[in-house]
Each structure stands twice: as structure tokens, then as C-alpha cells.
């Protein structure tokens, strides 16, 4: 049951060019920084990346884009990245945009053994083109397929050697659903603790979904839209 690996190199062992990789995070919040940096260093390419967003030019998945390591992105929103835009418009990068709730559900279902499901999201839009439509309770729904990945890479706040994970704040986002959907799921955590230290009542991702876990370092946790009020405001 010991899922602990020494560091990011051991965690990413076997990750090769051409694979499909899920990466948790929403914007730059809760992204697996250590693994992304290592993937840049390893130079793996032709990757299909499933991630809600695509980072910014010089951080997160933007770093992999800079090095042309991504062949296809499957996301719901990719707005904050100039290099992404350039590669998409020039046709170098394939992009599949899907509704955010469908993306989350497709990952969750992929991990839950449900190969497809019906959702109302996207009916009557381009998203529905070519998809089976069926009416339930008088309302049209689209058939969407589940997603799985060769590797799912998630970031948690704390985790133990059994792979149990706890996230902090809205850094949870896509991480739990993606953790379920990887053939191999890698968790990088800010703090690795001993089994028993995490309250079993408050585990967010049960360790069964995680194959490898390590404690990352030097988390930058960049803020994309720093928005504050001053003390004088009510």
C-alpha cells in the first residue's frame, strides 16, 4: 500500500510522448507545478492534455506550450495565453472545447466506470453536432462519453503514503475527478504525512485512486487575478 515515491522523476516514470495526460487545476489554482516543470525538462511531446485551462504564457501548461510539447488540448476555457492563441490559429495545436460541467463529469464517469451519460449542456449548439440526442422528462439531452487518461496528475495540500488526499480551498476543483480517471494517477502534495494523521472522515480523494505520491517543493502558487479591497471599503 505504500504509494510513496522519492520525487518527481520517479513519479513520472513511464510517461512518454504521445500519451493522454489529465492535469488538475482551475486557472493556476491547484495545478501540479512540480510535475509540469519536470515534463518540460523531460521534453516529452505530442501530448494530449486534458485540463480545464491551459495556463498562462510563462506558468502552468503554458510552459509545455512554449516548447511545443502539446499536440491537443481538451479544455473548457483557454483565454489567458498568447502562445496558445498563436498555435491554435496557425493550426499547430488541436483544441477541443467542451462545457466545463461536461468536462468534470466526463472525468468523473471515466473513473467511475460509466462509459457515457446524457447531459442537457450544449444541446442546440456546436457542441451537440454529431451527438446522439435523447429526450428525458420532455427535455433534450446529449450523449457524452467518459474520459480516461494514461496518467492523471493532481495536486493536493496533504496526502499520506496510502495515497489519501486532502485539498485546500478552491484548489480542489478538477483534481478529485481527474484522480479517479487515470490509469496511473500521480499526486503531488505540499505536505506528505504518515497514515493515520489525516482524519479518515475528511479525506477528499480516497487513496485507492492514487498510484504514486510525493511531496513537491518550491510551490509558487501564482495568483492570476489578484483582487483586493482596502480596509476603508465596507
Amino acid at each position: 500500500m505504500n504509494k510513496h515515491v522519492k520525487g518527481v522523476s520517479e513519479a513520472l516514470a513511464g510517461l512518454e510522448s504521445g500519451m493522454t495526460i489529465m492535469l488538475g487545476g482551475f486557472g493556476l489554482c491547484g495545478i501540479p507545478e512540480n510535475c509540469i516543470n519536470k515534463m518540460v525538462e523531460l521534453g516529452v511531446n505530442n501530448l494530449t492534455c486534458i485540463s480545464n485551462n491551459a495556463g498562462v504564457d510563462d506558468f502552468g501548461l503554458g510552459l509545455l506550450l512554449q516548447k511545443h510539447q502539446i499536440k491537443k488540448m481538451i479544455s473548457s476555457y483557454v483565454g489567458e495565453n498568447d502562445e496558445f492563441e498563436r498555435q491554435m490559429l496557425s493550426g499547430e495545436l488541436e483544441v477541443d472545447l467542451i462545457p466545463q460541467g461536461s468536462l468534470a463529469a466526463r472525468c468523473y464517469m471515466g473513473g467511475a466506470g460509466v462509459p457515457a451519460f446524457f447531459t442537457p449542456a450544449g444541446y442546440g449548439t456546436e457542441v451537440g453536432e454529431g451527438k446522439e440526442v435523447r429526450y428525458f422528462n420532455g427535455k433534450p439531452h446529449l450523449l457524452e462519453s467518459a474520459l480516461t487518461a494514461d496518467y492523471a496528475i493532481v495536486k493536493a495540500w496533504k496526502g499520506d503514503r496510502f495515497g489519501n488526499l486532502v485539498y485546500k480551498g478552491t484548489a480542489r476543483n478538477f483534481n478529485p475527478a481527474m484522480a479517479m480517471a487515470g490509469k496511473i494517477t500521480i499526486a503531488e502534495v505540499e505536505e506528505l504525512v504518515e497514515p493515520g494523521e489525516l482524519d479518515p472522515n475528511f479525506i477528499h480523494t480516497p487513496g485507492i485512486f492514487v498510484q504514486r505520491i510525493f511531496q513537491g517543493d518550491k510551490y509558487e502558487k501564482r495568483i492570476e487575478q489578484r483582487t483586493v479591497r482596502t480596509k476603508s471599503e465596507s
Binding site: G27, L28, W157, K168, A171, E224, Q225, R226, T227, V228
Partner: peptide, 19 residues
């Protein structure tokens, strides 16, 4: 509401990516 200056948390954002 938005946090006070200096109290922002990178792990607490909204869907617009604002703290």
C-alpha cells in the same frame, strides 16, 4: 467579498480567477 490587501490566498479564487 474580495480579501483585504495582504490577506489574499492563492488557493481561494472564484470562477473569474479572482482572489
Amino acid at each position: 467579498p474580495f480579501p483585504y490587501d495582504g490577506e489574499e490566498d492563492a488557493d481561494l479564487i472564484n470562477a473569474g480567477k479572482q482572489t
